[in-house]
Nucleic acid binder design. Structure first.
Lengths: 302, 302
DNA sequence: CTGTTAGCGCATTCAC
DNA sequence: GTGAATGCGCTAACAG
């Protein structure tokens, strides 16, 4: 048993180990996959309306991390788009032999229900999970709480929020956190739907200022959207942060390069993806749900 | 021959094809890889000083595209960092079984020389190539020419250039193009080394204005660096594009979100990566070198 | 040109 | 506890 798994005496194991290192033996992933029917690929499935979700930099970061971790174990990674309203596709994907594990990005619960039984223990969700699929996600509840309380602490009271896509359940916790803070300070909730794009952010900014002209802060659940808000506000002649403060979420590389530099909250995408990839690759029993902390980064915009 | 490659009569082939679709037969990638010793992974090796090169968004885009293309062929992708000064690592990488193909990103010629003979025909370079490794790259010669001539056409004459890392040979063509235009207009060449990062761009801006205070335009061979230049110039109190015009290269998503919005030249990374991935995955005879066009995008900064 | 056979390098399953 | 068969699903090298 080269795997170190099987039954063997300590002596025998040592001898094998010695031989392995001496001869520079490297197991053949293909042969192992064939014999054990364990698969040779880690599939990464991203749920979204269109295949364009694959081009999101966020997906790139997840993929980069997963591909790096997978490389150490001699397995490859493949990328798939899962149309939002056709969860069947996931079953089809899982049906292929050669699938060693599955990472679902931006999952919905119905979609997760369609993962076949025989894949259990080899699936992880980056986002919400289910009883059978462990979840790895950023703690956007406390992250959002931190951002909104920062806005409050700097004197803002009429705070609007631009959310993520409505079908994405992992954004709910953030909306709840925002709502709670607003209730605590006795303020009105001003929620506008977003979709994580910059274009939507610019449009949302216009909508917000039209509906609630006295708004003094905007929090977007995505830096990209927040940058769009910055743009939209600029077009409206609104000064940031003088008239309106703007905060985002993710702390992407460009958050520090915008003008004004964006106040935001971190999103440890690499840590999350690494943990999820390791969970399915190493089959270690994992917690049902693992949250990764998000911390406030104060810059100029709020 | 399920592959459709082998010798067979037309009738027989049709019968097989019919049976294949009727039974929903799907070939097992692992078994095929084992029997044909063809490998099951497409490795993507990125050359750079530190492992941090893997975090570059550019790598993410290459990886995303490759993983998507690979997925259609039931192969996975793995990501590897190749230390700049240890080309031996490439040979070690290639030694692993299970390697179906190799994509080298940001290659140097010496590194490419170390790819083993038996990998020939299954390697492609995103950047410069060699006699045995086909090259897929953006045509940054004409791209640069376009940008610099645009600067000239808008009245700029004292134009500085921030290059890429000096060890990266694919940047040479851009420097040549810049040099040629400057010679044509009888201007002085003002070349400052860069490394594709924003931080370096800010520093380069300061250096340029210190050495050549009358500079009226800066061209950076990377949008990220150009954004850094924008930042550095802003810190110096220099107005863009009033005092100094700034142009980048790549047309990344954030180029349109900076203030002022960045004038740049496109870099079809996805097209390039797709072509390279297909070349190694499909083993089709490829041209020695394929250039992908870059086109000028005029925004506000120049 | 066709049908047949022998491995590819492992994990698994039995006898011992 | 150990060692020797068997076969995973396919390709390649044969013989017909």
């Amino acid at each position: 048993m080269v795997t170190g798994q099987g039954p063997a005496s300590a002596k025998a194991r040592d001898r094998v180990t010695a031989a392995v290192t001496r001869l520079g033996y490297v197991p053949d992933a293909a042969a192992r996959a064939l014999a054990s029917r364990s698969g040779t690929r880690l599939a990464i499935a991203v749920i979204g309306h269109t295949a364009a979700v694959l081009d999101d930099p966020y997906v790139g970061r997840v993929l980069t991390t997963a591909a790096h971790i997978a490389a150490e174990r001699e397995v490859g990674v493949s990328l798939h788009w899962l149309p939002l309203n056709e969860p069947v596709t996931l079953a089809a994907l899982a049906g292929r032999r050669g699938l060693g594990g599955l990472l679902v990005v931006n999952p919905t619960r119905p979609a997760l229900e369609t993962v076949p039984r025989d894949l259990r223990g080899r699936v992880a969700a980056i986002g919400v999970g289910t009883r059978h699929v462990p979840s790895f996600d950023v703690d956007n509840r406390t992250g959002t709480d931190g951002v909104v309380r920062h806005l409050v602490s700097t004197g803002r009271r009429r705070i609007a929020m631009v959310t993520g896509p409505s079908w994405l359940p992992c954004g709910d916790r953030a909306v709840e956190a925002y709502t709670r803070v607003m209730r605590d300070i006795g303020g009105e909730t001003r929620v506008v739907p977003g979709d994580f794009t910059a274009a939507r952010g610019a449009a949302a900014a216009a909508e917000i200022m039209a509906h609630w002209p006295d708004t003094d802060a905007v929090f977007a659940l995505s830096d990209l959207t927040a940058l769009g808000v910055l743009d939209g506000l600029h077009a409206l002649g609104v000064d940031v942060p003088g008239d309106v403060a703007v905060a985002g979420f993710d702390d992407i590389a460009f958050a520090s390069l915008s003008r004004p530099a964006l106040t935001t909250s971190t999103h440890p995408v690499e840590d999350i993806a690494a943990a999820a990839a390791r969970a399915v690759l190493d089959r270690g029993g994992t917690d049902r749900v693992t949250f990764f902390p998000s911390t406030l980064v104060v810059r100029e915009s709020a």
